[in-house]
């Protein structure tokens, strides 16, 4: 029971349930219901109640979600708690489908920055959703530049529209404050890799030296960030997979190796790639 409680509390704190499959959501809901409240501290009870609210909302158990919300509203001051207001807004948006009421709750006080952050996401539903959402996030980050989650969201949105250069910039903003966030190092590497693929695809004159060197530089940056992620956490599988992907771009390596193989940067890049390919492959197999 303690093991299950610890697991659910970690899920609640990290928010990983957002990426759960429907099957996992369903199982997690059953686990919460089976846990009960015996032996839990007050903080644990309300943390799990908030998790239950999210899970029941995501699994379309609207009555259960309302019951959880009512218990939270009864316990806490709804006028002061941004967290409760966020839950109320989510409930209205999801169940009642009332976007106006949902945004009204978020707009009451302009100083409530966490609610303003949620407010930016409503622009996703407009016709030019991504562009509008990005502009809103930029406006919000001008007001609150230390909000790491918003930098992360902005990076993700830039990535969706194919603006990988800006996506890299956003994720690096997070790394300035969280220099050991190895999952973010992985994302930076991934964006560099996407940037390389985009640049290589758009590069019609594939034999031009400066274009080749630019592509090599992008791949090197991607590789360095993947390597940094596994330097911090050596069992981080995604990081090793990233290293393997950038050291195993055969078509590109063959192309540049033939004509530009004697250029110093290219030579070093190919030599490093050969070493890392086998190492990363064996690590992925062992993990």
């Amino acid at each position: 029971m303690t093991l299950l409680k610890t697991k659910l509390l970690k899920i609640a704190k990290s928010g990983v349930f957002q990426d759960f499959t429907p099957q996992q959501l369903s199982e997690t809901r059953e686990e919460i219901l089976s846990l009960g409240t015996d032996g839990l501290t007050t903080v644990e009870v309300y943390t799990l109640l908030e998790l239950q609210f999210y899970i029941s909302l995501l699994t379309n158990h609207d009555v259960e979600a309302k019951a959880c919300l009512d218990r939270l509203v009864d316990q806490f001051d709804t006028e002061k708690s941004q967290r409760i207001k966020l839950l109320q807004s989510l409930y209205l948006e999801a169940v009642a489908g009332d976007e106006k009421k949902a945004t009204d709750i978020l707009c009451r006080d302009p100083d409530e920055m966490n609610l303003s952050r949620r407010l930016t996401s409503f622009s996703r539903k407009r016709a030019n959703g991504s562009e509008s959402f990005i502009n809103n996030l930029i406006f919000y980050l001008d007001l609150n530049p230390s909000d790491l989650k918003s930098w992360g969201e902005l990076g993700s949105q830039y990535s969706k529209v194919g603006n990988y250069e800006k996506s890299v910039y956003c994720y690096k903003e997070i790394l300035l404050r969280e220099p050991f966030a190895y999952n973010i190092f992985y994302l930076v590497g991934l964006e560099y890799y996407h940037w390389f693929l985009q640049a290589d695809l758009n590069n019609n004159n594939k034999d031009k030296k400066d274009k080749v060197l630019e592509a090599v530089e992008l791949l090197s940056q991607a590789r360095n960030h993947f390597l940094r992620s596994i330097e911090i956490s050596e069992s981080y599988k995604k990081g090793w997979e990233g290293v393997y992907a950038v050291s195993n771009v055969k078509e590109f390596n063959d192309r540049i190796g033939g004509k530009w193989g004697q250029v110093k940067e290219v030579k070093k890049f190919l030599a490093d790639g050969d070493k890392l390919r086998e190492l990363s492959k064996s690590k992925i197999e062992s993990i």
């Binding site: 990290s14 928010g15 990983v16 999210y54 966490n114 989650k149 992360g152 997070i174 999952n183 956490s233």
Partner: peptide, 12 residues
């Protein structure tokens, strides 16, 4: 991982 909430971003 301890930095998961930077990726999950439940508020969005």
């Amino acid at each position: 991982n301890p930095f998961a909430e930077l990726e999950t971003r439940i508020e969005f």
